[in-house]
Design a protein around this nucleic acid. Structure first.
Lengths: 228, 228
DNA sequence: GGATGTGAACGACTTCACAGCG
DNA sequence: CGCTGTGAAGTCGTTCACATCC
């Protein structure tokens, strides 16, 4: 009665690559910042500059980037272009990811409206909801469908990622249906802990937990500043 | 040119309590699950049961709960009631937290609609937006105000937490205004890294990063399951 | 000089394993 | 006997410091 066998809490374990899990989150930040700098015409950047912009130490940046290979030039820094390409390839977003969304409330609409996703290779392929009043409605050019159409449409579109934005009490059921339809990764916004087979990857974003974490930090910190 | 001095990436450091940062997130999960069990009439629970429900090992649960004091009874388990009280006190949500939201788009509306927050002691005290078309509109019983009213209203309401749900290019400016108005903690949803003075706590929820993390895990894991 | 890449030290978190209590 | 609390061991992630290269 202990070792969890299905994917636990917040993100499921990966293979045996040598990257620290934490660094993957930073890769996304590096990438976004670099793309911005590139648009501004910058071509070269050092670990110190990158770190300063993101609130990370230079050593950490170098350790992270070393996973991508020896891209840096001593005395110079990194070529933004090269880094961007390497990061996109490493993260697996050098291709399209067809994504479906279940539960088309305000949260889903916020996601659908955010244009940053397509730029990073995510393409919304279908929307689902149980509410008969919503079915048939078009959001962002996509028609909302009933859950009964899910298995078929996921197969037709070849969607691999699913976003769950339904109330907590419906989330596990929706997750099961997504898994049954062949989805390979789930992004869960419902305030509940999902159990998935270990072949399906899970990332959970629990807004209630985040807000409580903030309250805790403020509660704890009271007046004192941080630092050593 | 290295050690970041303002609050970095995803969550700002706290004081010197002995709790691991990671465990704080789990505390919220414990609390929510326990409250549910309580509503179902359960009174006693063991570390193994709690862990199983949340995908955590029993040892981890005991280590976490030990920070709250010696609440467990060997051979029996924990009293749900006692745990809930201790968790709420520990997290600092045994009181009200007046919270303001800036940027009233779909994301903000999703938060405002979620009833779980008030149950945990969060009370939305005011809403702000720059869009003249939205100012004056009522959402969830609250009137949307312009940013110019922010400093005054935050002081009047005594709000301590601020949620940023504006586009990336406006986020830092909004954060500065919140800090100037005396806010003590910021929950940032904008896809950018904020810099805040070290007296102000920060929790960042970067949806683009989460989705990319999921793609990475699927990309990486390809077919193989997890396990050792 | 300026910046990278990296072993080694350090620190944080998790799991093990078991004594001890109800 | 079942379950807690906790040192000890183990694992993971970050920082330091420096040899190395342009």
């Amino acid at each position: 009665m202990s070792k969890p066998d299905t994917s636990p809490a917040s993100a499921s374990n990966g293979g045996e690559h040598k990257v620290s899990r934490a660094s993957v989150g930073r890769f996304s930040l590096y990438l976004r910042h670099l793309e911005r700098l590139q648009r501004e015409g910058l071509q070269t950047i050092s670990s110190g500059q990158l770190g300063d912009a993101l609130g990370i130490t230079d050593a950490q940046v170098r350790k992270d980037l070393a996973y991508l290979g020896s891209l840096g030039q001593p005395g110079i820094g990194y070529q933004a272009r090269e880094l961007v390409d390497a990061l996109r390839a490493y993260l697996g977003i050098d291709r399209q990811w067809a994504t479906v969304v279940v539960g088309i409330g305000n949260l889903a609409r916020a996601l659908l409206r955010y244009r940053g996703f397509e730029r990073q290779g995510f393409r919304f392929a279908a929307l689902f909801d149980t509410d008969p009043a919503k079915i048939g409605e078009r959001v962002d050019g996509l028609e909302i469908r009933g859950l009964d159409a899910m298995a078929r449409i996921i197969k037709e579109t070849g969607a691999e990622l699913g976003v769950i934005a339904v109330p907590a009490d419906a989330a596990q059921e929706v997750a099961n249906a997504l898994v049954a339809a062949g989805i390979r990764g789930v992004l869960n916004f419902a305030p509940t802990v999902l159990r998935l087979p270990s072949t399906v990857r899970l990332v959970a974003v629990d807004l209630a937990v985040q807000l409580e974490q903030l309250a805790f930090l403020v509660h704890l910190g009271q007046d004192k500043p941080i630092g050593p």
